Simulated scan of single mutants.
Amino acid sequence: MERSWKWIRKSKLNDNNQRSNFINKITTREALIIAIILIFSLIILIINTWLCQRYIDEKVILQRKKPKSDEYYLKRLGIKAWKFTPESRFLSLNIVRIDDKIVRVENEEDEVESVYNGETDKIRVVDNDKNDDIIIKISFNAKSDVMIQTNYPLFNINKALNMQYPPPIEYWFYYYEITILSNPNNDQTIIAIGLATKNYSINRLPGCDTHSVGFHSDEGRTFHNEGYTGSKYAEKWGKVNDVIGCGYCPNTGQIFFTMNGKNLGIAYTSLFYNWYPTIGSNGFCSLNVNFGQKKFKYKEANGMSVAGIISQELLNKVEEIIDVDKLN
């Protein structure tokens, strides 16, 4: 009996030892698994924290940092930034069609003649892609008054002219031209060129509504904030190859127009608005637009553009004259 008891006791001890070893083995295995899981989780946490921190930092930077303005892009792109942007329904209904083509020009001189301060000079028109000629063709297929504007207003991209002492009027101005390509019904179709403020009525020609100026082809009249009366300004225009220009002097608010290279005189003065180049028609016609990407018919405007002065030589000459005037 005693022997039997000892055997039972010994068996229990062996069972306890085996159970203890088994538990130790399981604990070690589980600990290893848990450790691996913890290390893996810690790595994920570190990566996640780094990504979150980076995302938050970018958000904070974006909130503190001002977004790049239109001024930044205009200075970077120059006159290439300007485009006429018709209403989407005009495009979908084919009332207005715009073709922007870049034509590679070989062996074309980048110096053009400019009449500056009474003297004829050769000036260099600055263009990042001087061998690329940008042709902007606009076709109107309208049965009533239709107006389109540029995406940007007249804007001076040269910091040198943003000064407390403004250059005299004759030294710089904004300018653009249109060339008539086709106008089959010249006696009935009106083509208009001018300036208007943003969100101008798309169903009125420039000059026929408030805060706008226009030069109309039918009778050579100019219009400013009025209906269809206008003021006699020049002769009728609108024939194929007619070149009409619009200029604006920001220092005096003067607006003038040109016809086939001739300045027609000051049309209006003291008009200080944030002007957008604006054109329109009430019939079927097509025309080219020159914002300054190539030489103008009006020689005095060579080196100018919708972006102010784009000729570095002309810009330097303006600064020299300003410095001389300051000393006097």
Rank of each mutant, 00 (worst) to 15 (best):
P86M: 11
E119H: 11
I202N: 13
Y171F: 12
A196E: 03
G214E: 04
Q63T: 03
P277L: 06
Y233Q: 02
V125N: 07
E170R: 08
I56L: 05
F40E: 14
C208H: 11
Q254V: 08
E109F: 07
D100F: 07
I44N: 13
N241M: 04
D99V: 10
V213K: 01
L91Q: 09
E113N: 09
I95T: 02
V126A: 04
Y176R: 04
R3K: 15
L287A: 07
I279W: 09
E320I: 02
N183E: 00
I134G: 10
N290R: 01
K12L: 15
E235W: 13
N282F: 02
P250N: 00
I134F: 13
N302W: 01
G207L: 06
T85P: 05
N48W: 10
N158Y: 08
C249H: 13
E119C: 12
E319C: 13
D15Y: 12
W172Y: 15
W237N: 03
I202F: 11
Y175R: 02
G78L: 04
T258W: 00
H224E: 14
M259D: 05
F291R: 08
I279C: 12
Y152W: 11
S201K: 09
G245A: 07
N141Y: 02
F272K: 13
L154Q: 07
R104H: 05
H216P: 04
E106W: 09
L62W: 12
A301N: 05
L42Q: 11
N328Q: 08
N131S: 08
S41T: 09
W5P: 10
F223S: 03
R19F: 13
E58A: 05
R19L: 12
V324I: 08
K143S: 09
D70C: 13
E313L: 13
T278S: 07
I8R: 09
D145V: 07
H211S: 09
R29G: 08
I321G: 06
P168D: 11
V318M: 03
K122H: 10
K326T: 08
N288M: 15
D209M: 04
M147N: 15
K83E: 10
E113Y: 09
D132K: 15
S11V: 15
I36L: 10
K75R: 02
E300V: 06
C208G: 06
K25Q: 15
D323S: 04
N328C: 06
D110R: 03
S20C: 05
V324K: 07
S92W: 07
N141V: 00
S305E: 03
G303Y: 03
V289S: 05
L264S: 00
N151T: 07
N251H: 11
N186M: 12
T278C: 04
K68N: 15
L195I: 01
S217G: 00
I190Y: 03
G303R: 05
S69F: 05
C249F: 14
I8P: 09
G280C: 08
S281A: 00
L205W: 00
L161F: 11
P67D: 06
W275I: 06
N185L: 08
L45P: 00
L154K: 08
A196N: 04
M259R: 13
L181K: 05
K6W: 11
K232V: 09
N263P: 00
Y176H: 06
G194S: 04
I310T: 10
G227A: 07
W5C: 14
K68Y: 15
N251M: 13
V115D: 13
N94D: 08
